[in-house]
Design a protein around this nucleic acid. Structure first.
Lengths: 213, 213
DNA sequence: ACCTGAACACCGTTCAAGT
DNA sequence: ACCTGAACACCGTTCAAGT
């Protein structure tokens, strides 16, 4: 059975939406941005989308499936941001740092969305295949960058997995501390990123070079 | 007004409990350990404690206040574990690493509890003073250990805050990746800690020494 | 195929009333 | 002081019925 047939563009049947599924996801992102995950519920989503509270069940098995779709979109956007911030930078160490800064930037710009991606509202994350794939692709950006550093002799050799996980731990922890406001106010200016972000991501990538282990 | 009068030992009045407040917290911890935070609700807690569903409101303003108390107890236990794992170790760098391992160990042994401490179920964490104090004390363990490293010339000088936050980011991120199973099965054996934990906490403390910044 | 309306079980919270 | 029972608003989910 095709698991996601007709997912991208549903026929505009003359019913309320050509793509209620995407409309629900968009509404969820709006709620997350404005109110937070505590206010996110299917009935409210249905109301905002102009359908009955039972309609979402035509597109999602349950609330958890909706959350999984929201998380999946988050991973795609985060991956794009990580790649965008690296731009055309040639130095592999700096590329890795820019990926990390992109990661943190996505998290601090979309705190509630980020929380859905990693928090416990969303149950059994591993059960959703396409969510797992989107998450793996984000990680692969870090992993590939670490390998590039190794090839250039700018990171300790050996299994790149550990080094990449170390980087992920660092940016993940940093993001959450920023979101929780443990490191002071999160949004300093509009486009400016927090000065600590550059410093700490720098510490992270540096430690890949200098480690004695 | 005393904010928490008679908090430790309430008089056994002959009513259902000498200390319903603590009984509710204990019941919450039991649910978190066995079922996860999704199953944690006041009515179930009241049922398990043998009181009506309205009784908890005599001791907690709302569900959020109960979660704050649960989180606070988590920070105390985590602080104790961080101190315990350092034991009588003399080397300040190794002490710092042991603190980090204790942090991760608490998180992986009590994943749902840890999630309440840092997740978004609990709203406005900063509003609860005694929760903020318990959280700050846990952080101070790391901070003090970093200062000790600096005094011994084993960590770069300068504001120890950044270095401590870097360490916290690392163990926080590592804990969550482990809890989410991104680094393979979490509980390898009963008392054995994951081999990656020692390695990555080692990387973290090492980077405090070797950083060029 | 897609959506509606009623219905069920459940939860957070409040409040008058009980001991 | 501490607890109970009824009550209200709300949510997730299901299902027969509509177009």
């Amino acid at each position: 059975v095709p698991t996601s047939s007709g997912r991208k563009k549903e026929q505009p049947t003359g019913y309320h939406h050509g793509d209620l599924r995407q409309a629900l996801i968009d509404a969820a992102l709006r709620i997350l941005a404005k109110k937070g995950s505590a206010q996110l519920n299917l009935r409210q989503l249905a109301r905002q989308t102009g359908v009955s509270h039972a309609a979402p069940y035509r597109h999602f098995q349950d609330k958890n499936a909706l959350l999984a779709a929201v998380a999946e979109e988050g991973f795609r956007k985060m991956t794009a941001k990580m790649r965008a911030l690296a731009g055309t930078e040639a130095n592999p160490v700096l590329r890795l740092q820019r990926h990390g800064m992109g990661y943190v930037q996505f998290a601090t710009e979309n705190p509630a969305h980020y929380r859905v991606m990693f928090g416990s509202e969303l149950q059994q994350k591993h059960a959703d295949e396409s969510l797992a794939a989107a998450s793996a692709e984000a990680f692969s950006v870090l992993l590939d960058a670490v390998v590039a550093c190794q090839l250039a002799g700018l990171a300790r050799p050996g299994d790149p997995m550990n080094s990449a996980l170390f980087c992920w731990s660092g940016v993940h922890g940093l993001s959450l501390l920023l979101i929780d406001g443990k490191l002071g106010p999160c949004g300093i200016g509009k486009t400016n990123t927090h000065p600590l972000v550059e410093e700490i991501t720098g510490l992270i990538v540096d430690s890949l070079q200098h480690s004695r282990r």
